[in-house]
Computed example of a mutant assay.
Amino acid sequence: MSAPDALLLISTQCPYCPAMLSSLADLVKRGAIGRLEAVNLNVHPEVGQTLGVWTVPWLRLGRIELAGMRSPAELAEWAAKADSETGLADWFHMLLKEGQLPRAQALIEADPTLLAAVLPIVGNVEASLNVRLGAGVLLENFAGSDTLRALLPRLGELSQHADARVRADACHYLGLTGEAAARGWLDARLADEDADVREIAAESLESLPPAA
């Protein structure tokens, strides 16, 4: 994976911005970041207005956007995984954990390919209930869409997960695809050892068109 480019928004009055700028410049020297652009909003307020950014420091690292001060270690970690599915999934996990569901929703609506980054959250048994519910909202927003149908094979894999909660959620999302091809994975779950999984699989099958 190539090193991501970075855009840092700062202001003259910001006490945290110099440290962020220094840390990012060090990552450029080390090759962990390909290019760094820093914009002072006191001089170019139009940049912040265009991006909808009102507080600094604010950083775009690849496709990931981070608001607020970040330590050198955090910046190095994000730079190493920026634009990878792991990094994008961690970013969405962070947004949902911080209660920024509307922000996550807006990001995916602007770039539906980001929906795939939600799937690792579905399979993360350690994710909190609020995070899992938020991931569910994001997926449900694309019910019946080509974007969700494109994730069908991966949802099928999640329906075979060792954790019953993951299997149950995957069965629900398979039903939301509206795709007859989901029937094979759902049929297999009708004999699942978990009653909730069996019930959700049956409900999802009822919502799907018949197999061709």
Rank of each mutant, 00 (worst) to 15 (best):
residue 116 A to Q: 10
residue 172 H to N: 10
residue 119 L to C: 01
residue 101 L to Q: 04
residue 56 V to I: 09
residue 64 I to A: 06
residue 94 M to A: 14
residue 127 A to N: 04
residue 200 I to H: 03
residue 74 E to P: 07
residue 148 L to A: 11
residue 131 V to E: 02
residue 77 E to G: 13
residue 59 L to M: 10
residue 143 A to K: 15
residue 120 P to R: 01
residue 132 R to G: 02
residue 18 P to S: 11
residue 16 Y to G: 10
residue 43 V to F: 13
residue 145 S to T: 09
residue 105 Q to R: 15
residue 2 S to H: 10
residue 188 A to D: 10
residue 170 A to L: 10
residue 180 A to L: 10
residue 193 E to R: 15
residue 152 L to D: 02
residue 130 N to K: 09
residue 10 I to C: 01
residue 7 L to P: 08
residue 174 L to P: 02
residue 118 V to W: 06
residue 53 V to L: 04
residue 113 T to W: 00
residue 207 S to H: 01
residue 166 V to F: 01
residue 203 E to Y: 04
residue 112 P to E: 03
residue 74 E to A: 10
residue 155 L to D: 05
residue 83 D to A: 12
residue 179 E to V: 02
residue 1 M to L: 12
residue 131 V to G: 03
residue 16 Y to K: 09
residue 58 W to G: 02
residue 24 L to K: 07
residue 167 R to T: 04
residue 9 L to W: 06
residue 148 L to R: 03
residue 164 A to L: 05
residue 159 S to F: 06
residue 9 L to E: 12
residue 132 R to W: 09
residue 87 G to M: 01
residue 163 D to P: 10
residue 102 P to G: 05
residue 121 I to K: 11
residue 199 E to M: 09
residue 7 L to Q: 14
residue 164 A to P: 01
residue 90 D to L: 00
residue 181 A to E: 15
residue 70 R to Q: 03
residue 163 D to Q: 03
residue 30 R to D: 12
residue 192 D to K: 11
residue 49 Q to S: 14
residue 146 D to R: 13
residue 202 A to G: 08
residue 119 L to F: 11
residue 139 L to H: 08
residue 159 S to N: 01
residue 18 P to I: 09
residue 119 L to E: 02
residue 123 G to T: 02
residue 81 K to F: 03
residue 52 G to D: 04
residue 152 L to C: 08
